[in-house]
Amino acid sequence: MKLRVNGKEVTPHDPDQSLLEFLRDDLGLTGTKYGCGEGQCGACTVLVQGSALRSCITPLSAVADREITTIEGLETDGKLHPVQQAFLDAGAMQCGYCTAGMILSCVSLLARHPHPDEAEARRALNGNICRCGTYPRILQALRSLSTGGRHA
């Protein structure tokens, strides 16, 4: 089987692995984090065909021939993705361990709803835990994007 990760075609040698293990241990893409192993915390979130997915509970076989984007694949030509920039501007992190998953969940949400209201944003992100409690800043980052930065 084959899949594409951040625009490059890759061939796993062990299709029984989880997507998370493959990304971290075989490809060295450690920006995707392990948090719980049961899809409860969102630290392992990646984009599959542009939609957020929990890589810790996703077997590699489920993403054959798909396009995967990890946090390392968001930056283009040294320029941060607008969501990455919004997290920086809002100071939306403490330890930062949840940040990659949060950013990718926000990218996924904005692709579906470019202007989510607060309730939609909370619903969409409720599967991502920030144990440091930086939730207000993450919503602030999202708000700055959905309003074109007017209320940032």
Binding site: R24, D25, G28, L29, T30, G31, T32, K33, Y34, T70, I71, E72, L74, E75, L80, Q84, Q85, F87, L88, G91, M93, G96, Y97, T99, A100, I103
Partner: peptide, 26 residues
Amino acid sequence: AKINARDIVTGAHRYPSDITRPGMLH
């Protein structure tokens, strides 16, 4: 601003669980 925030939003920061060494086992 947080000193290493950019490395955090890009996934470049290596947390303890991200450290690897040549020939490393798990």
